[in-house]
Nucleic acid binder design. Structure first.
Lengths: 193, 193
DNA sequence: TCGAACTCCGAATGATTGTTCGGTAAACTT
DNA sequence: AAGTTTACCGAACAATCATTCGGAGTTCGA
């Protein structure tokens, strides 16, 4: 069972290692799939013994929770800050979409796992918080979109925007010609005609 | 091992039952996930014994292949026919997107499974045909989009369109207020400004 | 430097589950 | 109606894999 050190001096190292495990797990889960990846494979990919993983997480599913939290929490936090900025509606939308796309491509593996395991996340008490974060973010996006684009079907437009941005994780490659910002601007241009 | 009847009179029943199994598998896989669904669960959901599934499919993975084939083949076929129609560029794009959205919502479960198991499909000899179908359809969509929208970043626009249409499977509900055609038109309107 | 806390090891285990297979009843053919 | 093929049963098997746990080496605090 995972136990965080009581000694303050050791917590930092523990937390750092824990984050590393999450990132590696996201990487491997994204490529091989969550269920197809065995704990022994995952451990081996970090040069760890199987049991070592349980020093940081109480089980496989908690690893998945950590991946989703690591994905949603910073996004929601940064997005909330943006909303308070004083730009005009279009600029606020553009800023939000840029932040969003940047976040998606910076956490591509997290996103792919998140999407792959959608059916798990959609139901079950365990995922309540993750669902709430996603919902909250979608609300922010809906608001920004509505203000920048008062006419037309706001509902469908939001769903379309969600689709294109989230889909970015599936094709974006760091060596590609388009920067995250350029991609975001392209999306916003589509939304605003 | 699955053995298709040699007697012609029995093939029809066999094929029909096989299709039923595929549809049920898509339904259950979409909700519970491919790996989380056991063959015994799947069989039970059809009031069948476990072994009966192997009368129609040689294994679990072949079931997944069948789901993907059942999804992609008719779509590609119908889309290919559309391309030859004589409408002008915008109408052809609209027809294609309508067909596409209708197909996605009519095969929602298939789509969800297809997306969930993307990591499996992306690699492995077994999935070559499925990947080829998807690629071919995307090429048709790219062409239709390019003709209807000669200016702007065609590449990004295609990716955006792919994203929003495929994402439709994740939120569409039959009882919703928007018809598949209305959704498709909304998407096309976004693409054409 | 000593003891406690920490990090990790890796074999064993217990549960799960895809697949097999011998058998039974029904359907079809002639 | 006898014989053959088809459809399905469901218990058993073999393999996989998440998790446990006793211990060994290391780091920290005093």
């Amino acid at each position: 069972m995972s136990v965080r050190p009581t000694r303050p001096a050791l917590r930092e190292r523990y937390d750092r290692r824990q984050q590393q495990v999450v990132y590696q797990a996201a990487k491997v889960f994204a490529r091989r799939g969550y269920d197809q990846t065995t704990m022994q494979e995952l451990a081996a990919s970090m040069d760890l013994a199987t049991g070592a993983l349980y020093h940081y997480f109480s089980g496989k599913e908690e690893l998945l929770t950590a991946i989703c939290d690591q994905l949603m929490e910073p996004l929601l936090e940064q997005a909330s800050e943006l909303v308070d900025s004083g730009d005009d509606a279009e600029e606020r939308l553009r800023s939000l979409v840029r932040l969003w796309v940047c976040h998606v491509v910076a956490h591509r593996d997290h996103m792919l796992v998140f999407q792959q395991e959608r059916h798990l996340i959609e139901s079950g008490e365990r995922w309540r918080k993750v669902r709430a974060s996603r919902k909250a973010f979608e609300r922010l996006a809906a608001e920004a979109l509505q203000r920048a684009r008062p006419r037309g079907d706001g509902h469908l437009a939001l769903l379309a925007l969600l689709g294109m941005v989230n889909h970015t994780a599936q094709w974006y490659r760091p060596r590609g010609e388009l920067s995250p910002e350029a991609i975001a601007d392209g999306y916003v241009d589509l939304m605003l005609g």
